[in-house]
Design a protein around this nucleic acid. Structure first.
Lengths: 194, 194
DNA sequence: TTTTTCTCTTAACCTACATTATTGTTATGC
DNA sequence: GCATAACAATAATGTAGGTTAAGAGAAAAA
């Protein structure tokens, strides 16, 4: 099991002792999930942080017309969650499920709070993680406000180069914010122009 | 000068001693800015964190056609910045200027790093700030992907109730992602329908 | 294998929002 | 107190992207 992915990830930003690592690991719960299996649904309270070891998860919302809008994909090494629900322990608005069969680790919010007290360096680690995520969301929002669908598609390919090959087009469309029909048309127009 | 706004803000999340407060305050730089005055421009390296005491700032990008897209307004009590540039100390892509005459405090990144070492509780404070901002961006992105212009306008009114009265319509349009012409038309259609 | 369910493509038609232009109104600077 | 720039309203026309529908492959299920 590829747990070291999480530890090397942490080690990039803070230095932990062997005991501290073991303390963290003792509180983690491992889980294998099958493709399409849900980890979180609208209305649930987000009690645990999710970190992906293998496979891929995604978070998305479903609008009043039943259409999915994908907020994030989480390949190995990424965290994923409904932040508002996690912070406030209130019912969430997102869904999280597995795009592929995946292995993940979960950390209860209550255990995380204890860890912050026991290992204050983790405050630093999660501050840095949150700040980086924030920068990514600022970038994505500007993209959504200022770029055309084709430009957003190209940005997507740059952000998730490993995913673009294996994801169904439909999901790419739900991420960049167009219908599958329009994405299909758009990509074929480019080919014709070549 | 309303510096206590920052200290009470911090006190909501962590408890500081008098000396720690003084240490922080000693590193802050005060600044008064006039309406439309720039604090940061595309290409600059974001060397200091900005916190608003009075007035209002905004961050925005300018696209290849010269149109502004507003990422955030910062009324009193809010932080604002180009996160990517601040983290990586690389040239930024945003502009930050004053919507109204404002008083702000600035904290150099290099001083902030020292503060993290001297007062580890601040790691916690800024982790919480970043996580809340993250939740807000997740929400806004879902809005932009799934709502119509009118619904985004209503959401804007809910998020910034104090601003909606005093901001030029043009800036609201640049925030919700429509042209000023369309926003004008849209709002008048509603009035007619009443 | 066969059936069923997804996914992709194509195409005709539709609409939310953009563009351009004009005119009137309101701030703001000198 | 006037000049100039910024903002708002309206309207005609344009277009990126949505909607609906129907058929072909591919993959999952049985």
């Amino acid at each position: 099991m590829a747990l070291h992915l999480l530890l090397t990830n942490i080690a990039k930003h803070v230095t932990l002792s062997k005991e501290e690592e073991l303390h963290i690991v003792s509180l983690l719960k491992n889980k294998k999930v099958k493709r399409k299996q849900f980890l979180f649904q609208e209305g649930d309270i987000h009690k645990q942080s999710l970190f992906v070891l293998t496979g891929c998860l995604r978070s998305y919302s479903i609008d009043s017309n039943g259409f999915e809008h994908i907020l994030q994909f989480a390949p190995p090494g990424w965290w994923i969650g409904d932040m508002h629900s996690f912070i406030n322990q209130s019912p969430g608005t997102l869904y999280i499920d597995a795009v592929d069969d995946s292995e993940i680790v979960m950390l209860l919010k209550s255990d995380l709070e204890k860890l912050y007290t026991a290992i204050p360096k983790l405050e630093r680690f999660f501050r840095i993680i949150a700040e980086n995520a924030l920068a990514a969301y600022q970038h994505r929002l500007i993209d959504n406000l200022s770029l055309s669908a084709m430009e957003r598609y190209n940005d997507f390919c740059r952000l998730y180069p490993s995913l673009i090959k294996c994801l169904p087009q439909k999901q790419v469309a739900a991420y960049i914010g167009v219908t599958p029909e329009f994405l299909s048309k758009m990509l074929h127009q480019v080919h014709v122009k070549k």
